[in-house]
Design a protein around this nucleic acid. Structure first.
Lengths: 215, 215
DNA sequence: CGCGAACGCTATACATAGTACGGAGAATTG
DNA sequence: CAATTCTCCGTACTATGTATAGCGTTCGCG
């Protein structure tokens, strides 16, 4: 789908009926011959991308490695198509691509001793984390881009606003942690680090449940 | 702010410059006297709601109870103002309300033995989970409402679409788990249950880290 | 007291969305 | 060959955020 390349290159907000039509060399209204409306277009885009996802799972390194692989694949997907994190929020498109993905990812977590309902909940939990992370990363990128200034400039610009609000006396913990987090962020701390942290927490959380189930 | 009540009653999409002005008995452009633009209006709404959040934390039931309380408060917030989950996604407004909330919630997790960077990451992780959950719940409600049909009707309507895609032979795991999850969902399984599951996983995940830090 | 400036507000207008409607030409089919 | 369907297009309507210009009131200062 041409709309996917458009979204990859210029973001979701560029995916407009008129724009997509232009890329295809058609008139805007011609699109409605193939697609009922914009919502369905987006659904199609999502399902198509799902269908194309890489599917290569280590079969025997234990559930933890498989779950991590699932998360990594989804993160890679959101990196390749940043608009996915913002779009797939509503009801899933329920197409063949999602189906295949669902099957694949369930198998990654199967044989953990969880019952079917727990299995579904665990997968949802894992994917929810990846999506939240991807969305945060995408937002950060968007802010940096449209404000057209670096982090440092932004913090400098809002310094006096911060000073009014960020009273270290009233908010000692926030001041302390905010400073540490800010420093870490501008230093060696990267989104990759945050992802690792979160994924570790999620897997540990699932591990606690799995251990309980398998005694 | 009148815009907040409007959003509570009719959703974010109803928060339109013209609509808000109408509620206030003003002309649309009069709003620009008080607010630079719509983005700032939304920021103000978010920060105001943050400032009004209930803040009553059990001081001495252990970090797990405090973290659960933080999560519950945030969930309650998203239940009272469903638009929050959809709006606060971009950069936080960085106002006094957010500041107070941040301080309060950090204190809930302080004294867990985590260093400052981890503390911030842990809180982000916890809030991220709540937001993901809230967003999923809100989406579900939205779908049910605008399709104006119950879950059963929807599944019935899409049955033949599903039949084409949901081949139990190609996707055995998905069929099995999907059936179980669907049954659980229409039965006793409720969003509340899903929330409990996810929160349990998040807290267990943090517990693993905290135990490691405190030996 | 009087007058000019600032303020609060309004009306109009423009750009950009999605998409409803009706029609024109081409392709397929009976 | 005729008829019907399919593909596509031009126009137009609605809703949205917001720029611009102008109106009346009020307030500060001489």
């Amino acid at each position: 789908m041409a709309a996917i390349e458009l979204a990859d290159a210029e973001g979701v907000e560029a995916v407009t009926m008129r724009r997509v039509a232009q890329v295809l060399g058609l008139s805007p209204m011609a699109l409605y011959t193939y697609v009922p409306g914009k919502a369905e277009l987006l659904d199609l885009m999502v399902d198509t991308v799902y269908a194309r996802m890489p599917r290569s799972m280590p079969a025997d390194d234990g559930w933890r490695a498989r779950a991590a692989a699932v998360a990594d694949d989804n993160r890679a997907l959101c990196r390749a198509h940043p608009w996915m994190a913002a779009v797939s929020t509503s009801r899933p498109p329920l197409g063949p691509g999602l189906m295949a993905k669902y099957e694949y990812e369930l198998q990654a977590l199967d044989s953990t001793g969880l019952d079917d309902v727990e299995l579904n909940a665990a997968l949802t939990h894992l994917l929810g984390f990846v999506q939240t992370f991807a969305r945060m990363a995408a937002d950060e990128r968007a802010v940096q881009q449209d404000s057209a200034m670096s982090d440092k400039q932004w913090w400098a610009g809002n310094a006096e606003l911060l000073a009014r609000v960020f009273d270290p006396e009233r908010y000692p913990t926030a001041a302390r942690v905010g400073a540490a987090a800010g420093e870490a962020h501008s230093g060696a701390y990267s989104p990759a680090r945050a992802y690792e942290f979160g994924l570790g927490r999620v897997l540990d959380g699932l591990a606690a449940l799995i251990e309980k189930r398998t005694h």
